[in-house]
Computed example of a mutant assay.
Amino acid sequence: MGAMSAVTDAEFESQVLKADKPVLVDFWAEWCGPCRQVSPILDEIASTHGEKMTFLKMNVDENPVTPSSYRVTGIPTINVYSGGEVVKSIVGAKPKASLLNELKDFLG
Results as ranks from 00 to 15, higher is better:
M4Q: 01
M4P: 01
M4C: 05
M4V: 03
S5A: 14
A6V: 05
V7D: 00
D9E: 07
A10G: 15
E11H: 06
F12K: 00
E13C: 11
S14Y: 14
Q15E: 09
L17A: 06
L17Y: 04
K18D: 05
K18E: 11
A19G: 02
D20Q: 06
D20S: 12
K21D: 01
P22M: 03
L24W: 03
V25R: 00
D26M: 05
D26P: 06
W28H: 04
W28P: 00
W28I: 06
A29E: 05
E30P: 10
E30H: 09
E30K: 12
E30L: 14
W31A: 07
C32T: 08
C32D: 02
G33Y: 08
G33R: 07
G33T: 06
G33M: 10
P34V: 07
P34T: 08
C35L: 07
C35R: 01
R36V: 06
R36D: 06
R36M: 06
R36I: 05
Q37R: 13
V38P: 02
V38S: 04
V38C: 07
S39D: 09
S39C: 12
P40E: 02
I41D: 09
L42V: 06
L42S: 04
L42Y: 08
E44T: 12
I45V: 08
I45C: 04
A46C: 02
A46N: 00
S47V: 03
T48W: 08
T48V: 11
G50Q: 01
G50M: 01
G50E: 02
G50N: 04
E51I: 07
K52V: 02
K52E: 10
K52I: 08
M53G: 01
F55N: 01
L56C: 02
L56I: 03
L56H: 00
K57S: 03
K57N: 03
K57W: 00
M58E: 01
M58C: 06
N59T: 00
N59C: 05
V60G: 04
V60M: 10
D61F: 13
N63W: 03
P64Q: 13
P64W: 11
T66M: 03
T66P: 01
P67Y: 07
P67K: 10
S69C: 13
S69N: 12
S69E: 13
S69A: 13
S69P: 12
Y70W: 12
R71K: 15
V72K: 02
T73P: 12
T73S: 14
G74R: 15
I75D: 00
I75L: 05
I75M: 07
I75K: 10
P76G: 03
T77W: 03
T77C: 10
T77V: 06
T77I: 08
I78T: 08
N79D: 13
N79P: 07
N79E: 11
V80P: 07
V80I: 11
Y81W: 09
S82I: 06
G84E: 02
V86A: 04
I90M: 12
V91Q: 13
V91N: 08
G92Y: 15
A93M: 12
K94M: 13
K94D: 11
P95H: 12
K96G: 09
K96N: 14
S98G: 15
L99P: 08
N101E: 13
N101D: 15
N101Q: 15
N101G: 15
E102M: 15
E102G: 14
K104F: 13
D105M: 14
F106S: 04
L107E: 05
L107G: 07
G108R: 13
